[in-house]
């Protein structure tokens, strides 16, 4: 198994201690931080997303993988910066009104930060007007919304409508995600894109920022 494969496997298996050790070793061997991120960490996390959706992985394992990812990113972030990974843009993220699930959203945040974005997190149960106010204040290029329930995902549509009515829609790209969300739903509510898992969300953000 190659060095990067070992890293992605450690993420997939949620090895909070082993993953950063492997990252450290790869760095010492002059593997670039960007390579470690894109071909190690993100590959592992992408697989976590796929398996979780298919019902082959459950919440505890996903949480452990996220922890392994977080610990690895802590180590990698300064290296990414010193390698000159540029700030590619600003993202406003939030779990929509009525929904208090923030595990997935926090994961996307982590991925986007890794990809060079500044992330402003509105937390959970964020009302449409909260999104609108924050867009005015922070002027992001991208807005990301998350929902875990079919009861709450329609709030994404209401939020997009509020952004539109405030005259802010044209200057933004909007991406959505979460367990019940799919590409068809994203299209129906007028979002610009949909990410089926955390790395896919970050990838989408990069495309929107023209940094992919």
């Amino acid at each position: 198994m190659s060095e990067l494969e070992q890293i992605s496997t450690a993420i997939l298996q949620g090895e909070e201690e082993k993953a950063p050790k492997l990252v450290n070793r790869a760095l010492r061997r002059k593997v670039s931080a960007k390579d470690i991120l894109e071909n190690g960490l993100l590959v592992g996390m992408g697989e976590v997303g796929v398996r979780f959706r298919a019902g082959d992985m459950f919440v505890p394992e996903v949480l452990m993988s996220a922890e392994a990812m977080r610990a690895s990113m802590e180590l990698l972030r300064p290296e990414l910066i010193s390698e000159g990974v540029k700030l590619v843009g600003k993202i406003l993220m939030g779990t929509v009104k009525g929904d208090l699930h923030d595990i997935g959203k926090s994961l996307v945040n982590m991925m986007c930060e890794g990809a060079g974005f500044e992330v402003i997190d509105l937390g959970f149960n964020a009302a449409p007007e909260k999104f609108v106010e924050a867009i005015k204040e922070h002027q992001p290029q991208i807005v990301g919304m998350s929902a875990m329930l079919t009861t709450t995902m329609r709030a994404m549509g209401y939020t997009i409508k509020a952004i539109d009515e405030a005259g802010l829609r044209d200057r933004l790209k909007i991406m959505v995600g979460g367990a019940p969300v799919d590409a068809e739903f994203a299209k129906r509510i007028g979002a610009d894109g949909y990410g089926s898992n955390a790395p896919a969300g970050a990838e989408l953000a990069k495309q929107f920022a023209g940094a992919a």
Partner: peptide
């Protein structure tokens, strides 16, 4: 269910992550 598999500390952390906002 998590207790025997993850031990008390880890099991409670998993619970906290899922339910702390309820």
């Amino acid at each position: 269910e998590y207790l025997p598999k993850y031990g008390p500390k880890e099991a409670m952390w998993i619970m906290d992550m899922q339910y702390q906002n309820y």
